[in-house]
Write a protein that binds this DNA or RNA. Structure first.
Length: 271
DNA sequence: CGAGCAACCTGCATGC
DNA sequence: TGCATGCAGGTTGCTC
């Protein structure tokens, strides 16, 4: 489910309800995630205030004075704010119960997500330390892409989805940004001009920022027991529209696999 | 070293 | 209706 805009929307949705509160209880219902939730997490978090909820790439960090709980939502994870005692569902793995009863609940059917504790300074954890720049930061720009692409024969779509190059560009938004930039996803990365990379970097920022803005309308969905966060109101131009007419030129959109991921583009508009 | 790809899981849509 | 198949928005870690 979540790409970067969804993770950021989640952060904004849960922060007002959780930040500044103190954890009074931790319930592990199913420890099986990408890595098992460690058994002593309840003791580690007991009575800890959550001082800040931040995001790096698609990771959410719940910071406490003793350390940080790093959460990842994988392909199917979600976080919701419920009340202590609300009946858990089938794939509700973890509850963080605050002293006022407000509860952060991690749900993840496919179990590709993670809940990892670290007492290292935030960001030096092995999951985070080799990540590239945030896509919406100034360090990410056309020059960054041009540098990273130098001498590389791999497809440009794989380049922009590489977390060492830039974080947070998942399959959907990679497709959308390349369409907006008019660049073929399978073009060798090293053969694209600096000028076109400047355009691509801009398009990545626009597509992501736009999706985050749209996510803002769904923040209330993160509270309460029913329903799901309304991620999917974001209109997608090409992803999921293989074979349909290109929105620009009307010719059918081409669908291929690139790095085992569905890739949609217009042979006519993207070069 | 980079590149390619299998693996980790469940749920859902589709087709017979 | 039931069953088999294929597909899914991410990331790690293996092999070549």
């Amino acid at each position: 489910m979540p790409e970067l805009p969804e993770v950021e929307t989640t952060r904004r949705g849960i922060s007002p309800h959780i930040e500044g509160k103190t954890i009074s209880n931790v319930v592990i219902r199913n420890h099986r995630l990408r890595w098992p939730i460690r058994e002593d997490l309840p003791q580690l978090l007991q009575d800890q205030p959550i001082t800040n909820i931040s995001r790096r790439a698609k990771y959410l960090m719940l910071e406490t004075p003793e350390g940080t709980l790093i959460l990842h939502l994988g392909m199917s994870g979600s976080l919701r704010v419920v009340q202590n005692g609300d009946k858990p569902g089938k794939h509700d793995h973890l509850d963080l119960v605050c002293s006022d009863g407000t509860t952060l609940r991690l749900h993840d059917p496919r179990r590709f997500g993670a809940a990892v504790w670290t007492d290292e300074p935030c960001g030096q954890h092995s999951l985070l330390e080799h990540l590239g720049p945030e896509p919406l930061s100034d360090e990410f720009n056309g020059d960054r892409l041009t540098q990273c692409a130098k001498g590389k024969s791999r497809a440009v779509k794989l380049l922009i989805m590489d977390n060492q190059v830039v974080v947070g560009v998942g399959n959907i938004y990679a497709n959308e940004a390349l369409f907006m930039a008019g660049i073929r996803p399978d073009r060798p990365a090293g053969k694209i001009s600096a000028r076109r990379y400047a355009r691509l970097a801009d398009c990545i920022k626009i597509v992501l920022a736009n999706a985050i803005e749209k996510g803002g309308t769904t923040l209330k969905d993160f509270v309460g027991g029913d329903g799901k966060p309304g991620y999917f109101q974001i209109e997608l131009t090409v992803y999921g529209h293989g074979g349909e007419p290109c929105p620009k030129c009307e010719k059918p959109l081409t669908e291929i696999k690139l790095g085992q991921r569905t890739t949609v583009f217009c042979k006519s508009c993207q070069r």
